[in-house]
């Protein structure tokens, strides 16, 4: 056994074996933490966009679509971001496990902490409005994304399904001339049964959402009129109107 020690020392000297420099280990350690941080940031971005997309939608429309609430929910869930978020959280989990003492933490604790940080940073991203800009950029640059994501504009630009949105051009007693989000002009008929939500002001230049029936070419009869409301919706409007094609 003593030979082993001497043989090993001889080998170390003969082959000029030396301890790897400290900076290499530091670099590796920092690299892992950098990847984990990036994963957490991307995860936070994803969660803020999921919140953005879901918060801008009207959650009661299933009643007008002859769908149940669960079917409706599954039709508007932004799967792209949820899958992305799942991959990112799993990636961050394995990243943490690869850190020096990451193995000491249970998977539940790691997932909980990552999720918590993702939610907190996601909240900050949401508060500064970065989610909206990123979503807009994705819609503009990635056609696949634009086609497959449920947005407020898509939801309200389905006249054949009874949903229409746009800006009021002129208003008369029983008719509104509306420029929809695709800049097509519609004659919207109102009657005494049409429910106009109290927050709606039927004035030129106002953006509204209409539930009703398509009567013919660019003709629509309204059963309910809602405001194109919310800070986020206002942001969209200022951001250049409709973000995606039908």
């Amino acid at each position: 056994m003593n030979n082993l020690i001497q043989d090993t020392l001889n080998k170390i000297k003969k082959e000029h074996i030396a301890p790897e420099p400290r900076w290499k280990f530091l670099l590796r350690k920092s690299g892992i933490w950098l990847l984990v941080s990036l994963a957490v940031f991307f995860g936070a971005t994803a969660i803020s966009i999921v919140y953005f997309l879901l918060s801008q939608l009207d959650w009661d429309l299933y009643r007008f679509m002859h769908k149940n609430s669960i079917m409706y929910f599954f039709s508007i869930v932004p799967y792209f971001w949820i899958i992305f978020l799942g991959i990112i959280v799993i990636g961050a989990f394995f990243g943490v496990r690869k850190t020096e003492t990451g193995y000491r933490l249970s998977w539940l604790k790691i997932i909980f902490v990552i999720s918590l940080i993702v939610i907190i940073i996601g909240f900050i991203i949401s508060a500064i409005g970065l989610d909206r800009h990123l979503n807009n950029a994705m819609i503009a640059e990635v056609p696949f994304y634009a086609q497959n994501i449920a947005t407020m504009e898509k939801q309200w630009m389905q006249p054949e399904q009874g949903f229409l949105a746009g800006t009021i051009s002129t208003v008369s007693n029983d008719e509104i001339i509306l420029k929809d989000l695709d800049t097509l002009t519609w004659n919207v008929h109102l009657d005494e049964k049409t429910l106009v939500r109290p927050t709606v002001s039927l004035e030129q230049g106002q953006m509204i959402k209409i539930i009703g029936n398509e009567d013919g070419e660019q003709k629509f009869s309204a059963t309910e009129i809602r405001p194109w409301v919310g800070q986020r919706a206002k942001g969209l409007k200022q951001g250049g109107g409709r973000m995606n094609g039908r």
């Binding site: 082993l4 080998k11 074996i17 030396a18 301890p19 790897e20 420099p21 280990f25």
Partner: peptide, 20 residues
């Protein structure tokens, strides 16, 4: 076993700066 042990010792030596 001695051969393996020598390889292990060399690995330990090379990684001494990683020891916390």
């Amino acid at each position: 076993i001695q051969d393996l042990l020598q390889e292990i010792f060399i690995k330990i030596y090379q990684n001494l700066n990683a020891y916390d």
